[in-house]
Amino acid sequence: MNRFLTLVGRDLRLALRQGSDATIAVMFFVLCVVLFPFGVGPEPNILARIAAGVIWVAALLASLLSLERLFQNDYEDGSLELLVLTPLPLEAVVLAKTLAHWLVTGVPLIVAAPLLAVLLNMEADGFGVLVLTLAVGTPVLSLIGAIGAALTLGARRGGVLLSLLILPLYIPVLIFGAGAIDAAILGLSPRPHILLLSGLLAGALPLAPWAGAAALRQAVE
């Protein structure tokens, strides 16, 4: 457990020292959402109707941004090979790095989302659910993304390839996340959506580190 936390701490320090990752992801998120009123017009009712979907889609895209570098630096400077040799199981390494990625890019998105919901005139009923679904959903995005990042290590055009592989797998998260907010706004219970989203998290939590570790082993072989 100590080793696990050390690794998380190391990745966090590295991310904060380089500084830009978290801010870039949030800025991309905000800009992406701000583009929509220009595309569909400033009509408040339309914006309120599409707010949940727009914010969720933007969150998916923003979480893709820094995924490419999740294992890339460690792979290139050789520390990944050392990490494979540590007593910590590789699955835990993947989980630690994913956790660090989520703390750096996922959490800022959750903080920024209510502000964007205000800009898009989202109804007040949806705010709590928006934050809750993002809190449950963004870890799933980071976990699935970690598989993609491990698979595309050393590939040509890894970044574009990564989004091609990962985006179809994000669809269930998007459906349940945006669906919960829509349900809350329409006065229905968002509970089933949120439960299903939690189910996805519970499934991804063991499976993604396993698949990611399998992919990393092939990469350093």
Partner: peptide, 21 residues
């Protein structure tokens, strides 16, 4: 994914993990 690696062996193996996921 399979065609994105210089080493075809590696592409095929990464593809296998992706298929199972």
């Amino acid at each position: 994914l399979v065609n994105a690696f210089d080493d075809p062996e590696r592409g095929v193996k990464a593809g296998n993990v992706l298929l199972l996921v």
